[in-house]
Computed example of a mutant assay.
Amino acid sequence: MKAAITRAFAFVVTGLAVSMAVASAWQRAGAEADRWLLAGLSAVIVLAVHLMPALLGRLSRLVVWPVWCLCFLAALWGHIWFFANASHGAAEGRAASSAQVRVVQEQRRAIEAALAENKARSAATVAGILARTKDPKARAALEIELTEGKRANELRAQLVALSGQEAAAATADPVVSGLTEITGLPVAALNVWAGVLIAMLLEVLGSLLWLAAVLGPEPKGVSAGAPEPAERGPGDAELVELLYEALENSEISPTAEDICRRIGGCKSETAARLLRGLEARMARG
């Protein structure tokens, strides 16, 4: 029962990670062929991260683990892209439904309408003309135009400020905003680090689950509490079979030291006898 649950959980986690990697690759690529190729490559990398430790555990660690680490980093890169795109989509959704954004947009429209009605020339231009004008009537008209020009400048400044408020309101995640106030870190940095941590958790969890699903529980009868093989006599054949199964599952290596460790300690003669039996069993396949 526990083994079935472990395998099911492993399939769910790996399926989720592969789906995220494929979605991220699909969004990054442009041409149709590029999308399929990049999606396939991303899926292979995630599968390698999850399955390599369980399937290739018997190979040299000098070969397996450097490759696994490279695949792990590549998978993280794809997941970070996925989280960034998801965050952008969420920001657009908030922008469409946020009451604060709607208020800012209404203010923008009012300011743009006021600017469209303001026909005054720039305040700097009018001020220069006013300095050279001596006619009182002309000066009065220029002073009115100068006031309107200054008001237009103020409206443009308000428009710029409202643009910043609209962008902030659209992209602000309530949780991230709260963490920003607590930690003092920028919103972008928090989003990136949150994505990295979640991606690392997903990949490591998938790898551990497949290790448990493939290797399985410790074989019965070969444990730290097993009796001394010398006392069992005819039971040596049974122990050899159990040791062979453990070897196939990458739980031990064919050495006397590993055999002694596996069965809870034994005499060197007993370990040598079991090792010879194990080697004969390996030769038979």
Rank of each mutant, 00 (worst) to 15 (best):
V63N: 05
V63I: 14
P66M: 10
P66W: 03
V67N: 13
W68D: 05
C69Y: 12
C71L: 10
A74K: 05
A75V: 07
L76E: 03
L76V: 08
G78V: 03
H79W: 06
F82A: 10
F82W: 15
F83A: 10
A86Y: 08
A86N: 09
S87N: 13
A90K: 06
A90Y: 06
A90L: 10
A90F: 02
A91G: 15
A91E: 02
E92W: 09
A95V: 03
A95P: 04
A95I: 03
A95L: 07
A96I: 00
A99P: 05
A99R: 11
A99M: 04
Q100L: 04
Q100N: 02
Q100H: 06
Q100E: 14
V101Y: 04
V101K: 05
R102L: 13
V103A: 13
E106P: 00
Q107C: 02
Q107R: 13
Q107L: 06
I111Y: 05
A113W: 08
A113I: 09
A116N: 07
A116Y: 01
E117R: 11
E117S: 08
E117L: 02
E117P: 00
A120P: 09
A120F: 03
S122T: 15
S122E: 14
S122M: 08
T125Q: 15
A127L: 05
G128A: 09
G128R: 07
L130T: 00
L130C: 01
A131L: 14
A131T: 12
T133K: 08
T133M: 03
K134I: 11
K134E: 14
D135L: 08
D135P: 04
D135S: 12
K137E: 14
A138M: 14
A138P: 00
A138N: 12
E143C: 02
L146E: 07
E148T: 00
G149A: 01
G149T: 03
G149R: 01
A152V: 07
A152I: 07
A152R: 02
N153K: 03
E154N: 01
L155P: 01
R156P: 00
L159I: 06
V160S: 10
V160D: 12
L162G: 03
Q165H: 12
T171W: 01
T171A: 12
A172H: 08
D173G: 09
D173K: 03
P174G: 03
V175H: 06
V176T: 14
V176A: 10
T180H: 06
I182A: 11
L185T: 08
A188V: 13
A188N: 07
A189H: 07
L190P: 06
L190Q: 09
